[in-house]
């Protein structure tokens, strides 16, 4: 459940590196307890946005605040409030898992560090390997340890930059399940990912970036906004053309019949489906089942990217 109190605010946040504008006038408000996805191609400004919000980089212009602390002014306070899992886990290979966490516990000034280490190593299934050098760990284990490191000081906001990239499907699934568990515990999570299925599954809202903000909403709303809502009626074998019948309704935006499957674009299926079902049955259709045509977030993303590139190339 999302608490509507905003924990992250940005207003016209921009950052350039020389001539390159990495983040362009980004304005966001992210609620406490929300899982927020940052999507975009390589070089879209996702990592720069995370680094700006983690007070690792200073904005070129605009402003950002985390838990009421201003980036560029209260950086030390912000660093206490956040946990960061960077793109590369960045663990000390020569140190054991326990030593890595103990070191970061000291950096964050964590009290009762031994208990916290035990808690997260057990939670992530690494407790039995705590005395082994991290250099001997698999990628999945390293990633889990880096997540434990990011959580050790119980941060309010957690930044996860590509948490499952380069992991095998089993390890990726474990990490995803762990993030999903965290989601229910009121912690705000910012998730940068190329994995759109992952974003779809985990995120309450997503921002699609390509230097600037292309779209911002929940995955469901983005699908509706880009593709509208479409209902699919699966019929028993029929030779009847039902398109003219359905197009008589004002609320039907588009109808397409392919053999015994009819796809109808409507704004509000909850209200309109019973009317359409009744009309089809009266016209002699035998409806086997009805479902909503579900577009993937990937389709939305590609559509947005195509539109964005069209604008950049002047073809739109």
């Amino acid at each position: 459940m999302i608490n509507k109190e905003s924990v992250i605010h940005t207003r016209n946040l921009s950052r350039s590196f020389g001539e390159i504008l990495a983040v362009d006038r980004l304005s966001l408000a992210i609620s406490r307890g929300e899982v927020f996805g940052l999507l975009g191609p390589n070089g879209a400004g996702k990592t720069t946005t995370v680094r700006l919000l983690a007070a690792l980089l200073q904005p070129s212009s605009g402003e950002a605040s985390i838990a009421g602390y201003q980036v560029g002014i209260d950086d030390q306070e912000i660093r206490r409030k956040i946990g960061l899992l960077p793109e590369a886990p960045g663990l000390y290979d020569g140190l054991t898992a326990e030593q890595n966490l103990a070191f970061y516990g000291a950096m964050y000034g964590v009290e009762e560090i031994s208990q916290q280490i035990k808690r997260y190593l057990e939670l992530l299934g690494l407790w039995n390997r705590r005395h082994e050098p991290v250099g001997t760990f698999s990628k999945g284990m390293r990633q889990k340890l880096a997540i434990a490191r990011a959580l050790l000081h119980e941060p309010e906001v957690l930044f996860l930059d590509e948490p499952t990239s380069s992991l095998d499907p089993q390890a990726a699934r474990l990490v995803r399940e762990f993030i999903s568990d965290l989601k229910g515990k009121g912690r705000t999570i910012i998730l940068c990912t190329h994995n759109l299925e992952e974003a779809d599954r985990l995120c309450d809202r997503v921002a699609v970036l390509n230097g600037h903000l292309l779209a911002l909403d929940s995955p469901i709303e983005l699908r509706r906004r880009i593709f509208g809502r479409k209902v699919v009626f699966h019929l028993s074998a029929t030779k009847t053309e039902f398109e003219p019948i359905l197009l008589e309704f004002d609320f039907v935006n588009h109808v397409e019949q392919i053999e015994n499957k009819i796809v109808v674009a409507v704004d509000d299926p909850d209200t309109h489906n019973p009317v359409l079902i009744r009309a089809l049955v009266e016209a002699g259709a035998e409806i086997r089942f009805v479902g909503e045509l579900r577009r993937r977030l990937e389709d939305v993303y590609l559509e947005l990217m195509q539109a964005s590139e069209g604008i950049i190339n002047g073809t739109n």
């Binding site: 030390q76 960061l84 590369a88 960045g90 970061y104 950096m107 964050y108 880096a146």
Partner: peptide, 14 residues
Amino acid sequence: TTRTLEPLLATPVS
């Protein structure tokens, strides 16, 4: 080179 600096700099250490 081992990319350990980013998580370190993200902590409150001065």
